[in-house]
């Protein structure tokens, strides 16, 4: 950490000046009773530190801590947009699990989406990482292009995909037609599985470069000589991959999986903009349904209860991440 910064700083030239000034300042006697000084100084320092972090903490308190508490409180109420809220205990939670089919279906759909896309992203990301592993200019160019879709926004990417795969005006249609193939792309937007696959292709295009970059970092941590030794010993590429490379990359793999799992559980834009929940709310994700409940039906209390359930789900994933990451350290 210090090593990297020492280059721009180069404190060495003025050591002499520093030494002389130290003498000067002590003789000036800034603080009476030198030995007792530190405690006073320390206290002053702490106040400076606290003062410096206060503005950020204030914002965090108002727009993060308060909303978390308020969410729990709201979830116990019937809370309309306007008018008085009424306390109803756990009724919102009971309703979520017993009377709201769309919510349960949206959770199920979100889980299906997550379970399908996570291995796709991982395998594709790993394959790309192997592909661009060799250090060369062309590799760098390929990496850069593969990564580029990641930097644009999810909304922009969704609008783009809406156009790109549009059944009549879109470019995919133009290309397929020019190749002499007729494909009815309407189902890519209005039927559950075709629409899901369309979204998965879009998301893979958009984020696989990110996974590739992280996995490339992990791949480079695998010592070359170990692999060569294994090769000499006659281990085939599959053995080397599953027996050496993947186990050594474990921390990166966990990280990458957590990114794609937590990202997929929060999916919204790609479905809201591309499938619009069609057909009949079958491609509505959990966040999408919370949005519908809170901001189109304005049942804020019920929306808050659904958010709490969602949050618990996310915290379970986060806890699993921490446990998995701590695991390898112990053995």
């Amino acid at each position: 950490m210090t090593e990297t910064l020492s280059t721009p700083v180069t404190p060495s030239p003025d050591t002499s000046r520093r030494a002389s000034s130290r003498v000067r300042s002590t003789s000036r006697g800034r603080r009476p009773g030198g030995a007792a000084g530190p405690s006073l100084r320390e206290r002053r320092l702490s106040r400076t530190g606290l003062l410096a972090v206060t503005p950020a903490l204030l914002l965090t308190a108002v727009f993060f801590v308060v909303p978390v508490a308020l969410m729990a409180w709201m979830s116990l109420h019937r809370w309309p947009l306007l008018g008085r809220s009424t306390f109803i205990g756990l009724d919102n939670y009971v309703r979520a699990f017993t009377a709201d089919d769309t919510f349960l279906r949206s959770i199920g759909f979100t889980l299906i989406y997550t379970v399908v896309i996570t291995p796709i992203l991982f395998v594709a990301g790993l394959a790309l990482a192997f592909f661009v592993r060799r250090p060369s200019r062309a590799s760098t160019f390929f990496r850069t292009i593969f990564f580029t879709p990641y930097v644009i926004g999810f909304a922009a990417a969704s609008f783009l995909w809406l156009w790109f795969t549009d059944p009549s005006a879109g470019s995919v249609n133009a290309i397929l037609t020019s190749l002499g193939t007729e494909v009815d792309q309407t189902s890519w937007f209005v039927e559950q599985w075709p629409a899901l696959i369309n979204v998965i292709v879009m998301v893979t295009w958009k984020v696989v470069g990110f996974q590739m970059i992280l996995l490339l970092g992990g791949l480079n941590s695998v010592p070359e000589d170990v692999l060569e030794a294994a090769q000499i010993d006659g281990a085939g590429w599959w053995r080397r991959l599953t027996g050496i490379i993947l186990p050594l990359m474990k921390p990166t793999i966990i990280l990458v999986l957590v990114f794609s799992i937590s990202g997929s559980l929060l999916a919204f834009e790609q479905f809201f903009l591309i499938t619009k929940g069609r057909p009949d709310n079958e491609t509505v994700t959990a966040v999408y349904w919370i949005y519908n409940v809170s901001f189109t039906k304005f049942e804020l209390g019920y929306g808050a209860a659904l958010s709490v359930i969602m949050l618990v789900l996310l915290l379970i994933v986060a806890a699993a991440q921490i446990r998995l990451l701590r695991g390898p350290k112990n053995d």
């Binding site: 727009f63 993060f64 969410m71």
Partner: peptide, 18 residues
């Protein structure tokens, strides 16, 4: 740092009230 664990899309309902 806890703010990194809890995504803001889940907190929008109470945030709008705040």
């Amino acid at each position: 740092l806890a703010g990194m664990m809890i995504p803001f899309s889940v907190l929008l309902t109470p945030i709008s009230v705040v």
